[in-house]
Design a protein around this nucleic acid. Structure first.
Lengths: 195, 195
DNA sequence: ATTCTATCTGAACGCACGTTCAATTCAATT
DNA sequence: AATTGAATTGAACGTGCGTTCAGATAGAAT
């Protein structure tokens, strides 16, 4: 029989994922046991297997959901006109998205090694697709003469590293507001590519 | 009695550290067993405890040695004259040092979570000291009017992230020589701070 | 040849892990 | 009140972990 709306299973699955995300981000995939995750949502370890086939799949789902949401959210932006403004838009988008999901960002960048080879290949493809979103903007600006870039690929990787590195030091309620961070990084990025 | 030069113990210790570094970098601290490390140098697990008190100390020593060597090497540079050239020197130094030690760099950035709190504090202090080396150059150049920087700390973190991110994509024998990488990043960094 | 000592092994310890599953609980349906 | 079936438990499985240590080994010193 189909589950009724509001049944337990419709909230337990996500709660497990939330707990796993938080714990994996805090201590690392290998250091968190299924018993810990279960305890976090008030269950015993065995019950988790009602919601995930195994621990590896739990990790993959978290990373895959994150990357899929990231790519979908960027696809859903209305492209600003001109490489200049499109690049600004990318910076703002990236910082917003990442500041709102520090745990998922941490996972996506730290736990690649703990994925099975097949799962790794999938996530790696998505990561590459995201890099290509930025590279497309740079190439476009380069072609139009808006930007002056010596090596598009290297600049792409440098900017992605710079932007993603925010998670190393940014803290909610710290010295800088998200808006200030955006302003500062828009400036840094603009300088890096300016003609 | 003091060991003679060339005795086994004077080469086994470093060999164990080399093997541990390689394996930790490849698979992560938690995923590598003492038995694996021992096998890599032709020993059984028990013998490792002649050379390290425990696995945690083995990890800490690797990270601490790396950070200490990094800071000492930078201190040993003859300071170039002027913020402009000093910054170029820092970029060249950082890229050189990191390209030569990809495993140690990987460890130092990925395994902080697996350090005990006391050990973490020590490494974190060293990391901060290294960041301060770059920040000092930026502040100096800002004061002298050589650079135009809106937020010195943020720019420092952005540049460190950009430079360290090289390890994500750089491979020996790849498309770019280390010299070419240095040239490209010197240019990116110069643009980021230029007046 | 014997002693000595640093080095190393092999077995064991207790523990925690991911995962399975028969038995139980519990809420919704009849 | 009885029935049903999904949700959950609790115990167990086999495995591998970090670490210890009594005993074996082997190379240098006497």
């Amino acid at each position: 029989m189909a589950r009724k709306a509001g049944s337990h299973a419709e909230t337990t699955g996500p709660a497990i994922r939330d707990a796993a995300l938080r714990l994996f981000a805090r201590s690392g995939f290998a250091a968190v046991s299924m018993r810990e995750i279960a305890a976090e949502v008030g269950l015993r370890a065995g019950a988790l297997y009602l919601y995930t086939p195994d621990k590896q799949t739990l990790l993959f789902d978290l990373m895959h959901n994150h990357m899929t949401a990231l790519l979908a959210a960027w696809d859903a932006t209305r492209p600003a006109v001109g490489p200049d403004r499109r690049l600004e838009q990318f910076v703002a988008f990236h910082i917003d998205f990442h500041i709102e999901r520090p745990d998922a960002v941490f996972l996506a960048y730290m736990e690649l090694r703990n994925l099975s080879p097949e799962n790794f290949a999938i996530i790696e493809t998505q990561r590459r697709a995201y890099e290509d979103c930025l590279e497309a903007i740079l190439s476009d600006g380069q072609q139009k003469g808006t930007f002056t870039i010596k090596d598009t690929r290297v600049t792409t990787m440098a900017l992605i590293a710079m932007l993603t590195g925010i998670h190393v030091w940014y803290r909610d309620g710290g010295r800088l507001t998200p808006e200030r961070v955006q302003t500062l990084y828009k400036d840094l990025v603009r300088r890096t590519v300016q003609a």
